[in-house]
Design a protein around this nucleic acid. Sequence first.
RNA 1: GCGCCGGUGGCUCAAUGGAUAGAGCACCUGACUUCGGAUCAGGUGGUUGGGGGUUCGAGUCCCUCCCGGCGCGCCA
Length: 774
Amino acid sequence: MFETIRRELTSAIAAALTAMGVQEPQVFLDVPPRRQLGDLAWAGALPLAKSLRKPPRAIAEDVARRLEQARAGLPEAHPLALLEPGCSIEGPGFLNFRLRRGPALARLLLASTSTDTAQGQKREPGFTPGERGGPGGVAEAGGSGGGPKCPPKVIVEHTNINPNKAAHIGHLRNAVLGDTLVRCLQFLGNTVEIQDYIDDTGVQVADVVVGFLFLPEAEMLAAVTPIWPETADAPSRRRVLEAFATRAGNGTLVNDTLGSPDFDDLCWDLYPRVTRWYEQDESALTFRSEVLHSVEAGFPTGMSLSDAFEGMSSSGPEPRTPNHASVSRLAAAVAEANVRCHLVTMGRLGIAYDVLPHESDILHRGFWRRAFELLQGARAIRKETEGKNAGCWVMSLADSPEFAGMADADKILVRSNGTVTYTGKDIAYQLWKLGLLRDDDGTLHDFGYRVFERFAQDASTAPVRYGFFGDRALYRTASDPGERPTGVSFGAGSRVYNVIDVRQSYPQKVVKEAIRVLGHPEAAENSVHFAYEMVALTPKAVKRLEEAQGLDFSLSDEDMAKPFIEMSGRRGIGVKADALLVTLISEAERAIAERQGADDGSAPDQRADRARAIAVGALRYQMARQGRNRVLAFDFDEALAFEGDTGPYLQYSAVRAAKIFEKLAAQGLAGSPEVDAKAAADSAIPDDLWDLALACARTTEMAEKAVGSLEFSLLAGHARDLAQAFHKLYHEHPVLHAEDEAVRALRRGVFRLFAATIAAILEELLGIPVPREM
RNA sequence: GCGCCGGUGGCUCAAUGGAUAGAGCACCUGACUUCGGAUCAGGUGGUUGGGGGUUCGAGUCCCUCCCGGCGCGCCA
């Protein structure tokens, strides 16, 4: 409703300006800062004063006159008929418009609930479908290869955690930002594909494999036995590998019980021990390269983990010289188990994916080989024969203004030993994402695919289910393109968002440049690096971690004097995502108990659900409310706050609003959107109620702004403003105890609009569950 | 050295070039026998790091300086 009026008024003003001789006028409508000034404002008369050589107020008057003429002939049903006749000119030349509050509110109410019929059907509170995906949408067809038949698809890649240890809060920022982007894009009418890239062949996974196979036994056992108790009776490397195979065989390698140590926690402990070993004994690094070598070679399909360990033990009691395939198989198991853990962790926050592209498949499917041919064909790369890069294939960046002023404007894609760099592989992968990695006959150079996993999250708030009841399916890539369930297709997006922290800006720019020089400037423009600053720890938080875990990160005084300290998986410094969630949940449980006493009659599992929803709300809101360019210095007290500008504050407003309607229904005073709309249509609506209604109506606009700028602080701020306005009105405008039925209907109408809007913002856009009770 | 990002009340943060720079925390004073006090009302606290410029209008854009962070590998 509101968006429609905006659009109509924008084009009406543009038409007036055109008639006044302005070439291609750009019209932007604001909302005035104070409601007395009006509901919509146009400040464009001021900058036009110079070119039109007229005082701005005169221009505004002229526009106002023309608008009146244009509106004179409009039918009553036209959106612009919802504006008060005339407009006011304020200050130096602001043109301010007012809505006819009663009819506008009535319209909002009817739109907000018109689809709220069938059970389970998706609500679209406050937003008519036609208002979504407006000009702020991103779905203009940009893919160069695709025909107009299929609707354009947006790809969002996020999370991308190295599958060698538990997720920490830095990964959480990535995933929450990515997931929020996904939700906003979908809300605005886009088709979205969610990818989580798995680097299963890198040194990080290799190091964990080294940990299992080669790290001195005592060190290895110190990490493993606390988490795998069955290895404690006769601790040995052999026993650990047996346990690994057994657990993999019976499906207990990963459990999804929150709070009990899991495989990723084991790796979290094991990994830093390996890196410390390398530091103490440089010769140990040869194990890393051996393992990497094995991983690259791969293993025969169908090889089980016990087959692999069989192959190892055949060479003696200590598996010091396992064969390539066995090691590779173990690496795959390590990666897969960690990925499972990450999926469970993210699922707890309502974050889900469609496909998991694996680095190993990119390798084996020969993505780079094909990309190399394309780059060579386009003469985008050259082989250096002399100088410091002799023997390397490089891409020149000298022609791009982006890289102007660089001392060395060449980027190496293939090393002198013939191996490809990370950036090189990334170019190939990005080409695939954009549907540009094609063979000579024009067909897509694609992966194979198979179902990764079926599992359901146990939580009833924000559940993520893969492969159950048709909720959603999760696939991983395969290296054989023939392996492809019917109807499954990924990649080839018209726009691609890569959610990666800001430190990767340089390689991301290189990738984008490669797309451009390959002759796809539009696709390059549609390759968006969603950059965000890192999450670090306050020195206070580091101290607290050390105390809580009995660890010593041996940080220098200099480090501790810094404003924040970077997390490091290699050193084991970090706040694990699940650990934080556990703490949040128990804090929430405590807060519930404090507030409600023991006699509120709710079952323990209901309480657990509420605590969980509150924990997720607090966490997601904290990640979303901060601007993406600012380092998030993590502080426990701040993260555990449930009052003030927090997720629970928003959730509470939603719960409170819903409660009003429960109480009304119990007294037979529930009314209906139609009744309230009728009441609203001919009431005088006071400023404060109108303010809230108007703010609700701006939600689509805020979602568009958030996506356009990739700043979800805008959306978080919008939600907080709504909740704040509601909480205030809640005290001043009782509904159940209203003076008379007319007043009640009006308040009920505005709160009805708010309840629908805040629920949509929290659940659909921000991914914050709304519990029934707090 | 070059590049990117930040600097806004004591603290943490917000603000498509627009109208009187907003929240929260902390501190002080108040508000339920009425829809849940994770709330609300009121108060103290700001030359938006310094300086110059552009503009009808600058926290926002340009220049410059200061402080802090991060990038600039044949690493991943």
